[in-house]
Design a protein around this nucleic acid. Structure first.
Ligand code: FES
Ligand code: FES
Lengths: 143, 143
DNA sequence: TCCGAAATGTGACATTTATCATATTATCCC
DNA sequence: GGGATAATATGATAAATGTCACATTTCGGA
């Protein structure tokens, strides 16, 4: 459904949304244990997200990664777009091609409208919205 | 959602269900183009399915693979169990662990009950049922 | 009974994905 | 300015997955 990289990226962004801002940057060495992601792997992902302007960064002492307030309004899909694109989300269950609701493959009905539902939610749900749910205890940020 | 191997396996089994029986066995060289699966890869998958008694086989001239009538009543989940197990189907969207509806992760609601719905359908839908849909034109067997 | 047709077994190879290591560059602070 | 700090760049390694090649076994039929 999502690659490991995307999962890690989402966890990292949510973590930054919860624990960082422009005045409280965080270093990878203080993040990776708390979201259970290998340190160097996390570093690479955060750099990628920073380069694509999903998150922000600053080098040198007092530096680190953080999520700007304006970036908190981004929808989640932006994260997965940057990391792996949305091919995996849209691919048909039987062929390697995209799913076509007009000519549904044999398994199409078994999965229901699940992937389009998920994709729609990723597009419509902002980082902000999700951390509200976490703060309210309606969801957890695991491992 | 499903590995390529599982997709290939399902396509192959459905194809056998449609075009073979104990008196009409089929050879991999007559199958692979029609379902668009690399020949040797398909051979390996069919051997695996045969060894695990999802499909049947016979060597030598007049030999080939086929699906017995009793095996047509098997649920689809058996195919994926044999090929890759169901870890991928049950894994949580954020951690690598299993999904737990009691303590839902931040993304759990975004995907809805999709994976459990899909899994349930794989468990309840038989090969037989699916080829009826294909025969009725309600679904297609792609590529 | 022998030949050829087919699955089977084994393992090599390629590709993608995940992980690690290290050198370089920018920034702060003194 | 110089040293420590932290991101950045680059690329090497590992593991999982997908793909190919070939020798072996089994079986039917002439
Ligand atoms: S999953 Fe195959 S057409 Fe939708
Ligand atoms: S998807 Fe994470 S708990 Fe269900």
């Amino acid at each position: 459904m999502l690659s490991t990289s995307s999962k890690y990226a989402i966890k990292a962004v949510l973590f930054l949304a919860l624990h960082s801002n422009e005045n409280h940057k965080m270093m990878v060495k203080d993040i990776f244990q708390r979201i259970n992601v290998p340190q160097q792997y996390l570093a690479k992902i955060l750099q990628e997200l920073s380069k694509k302007d999903i998150i922000s960064s600053a080098r040198g002492p007092k530096g680190g990664f953080y999520l700007s307030d304006t970036n908190k309004t981004l929808p989640l899909i932006n994260i997965v777009d940057v990391i792996e694109g949305r091919h995996r989300l849209q691919s048909c269950m039987l062929s390697i091609k995209e799913c076509d609701s007009q000519n549904p493959c044999a398994l199409h009905d078994l999965v229901g409208n699940a992937n389009s539902y998920f994709l729609k939610n990723l597009e419509e749900t902002t980082i902000e919205k999700l951390i509200e749910d976490i703060r309210d205890g309606k969801a957890i940020l695991p491992l």
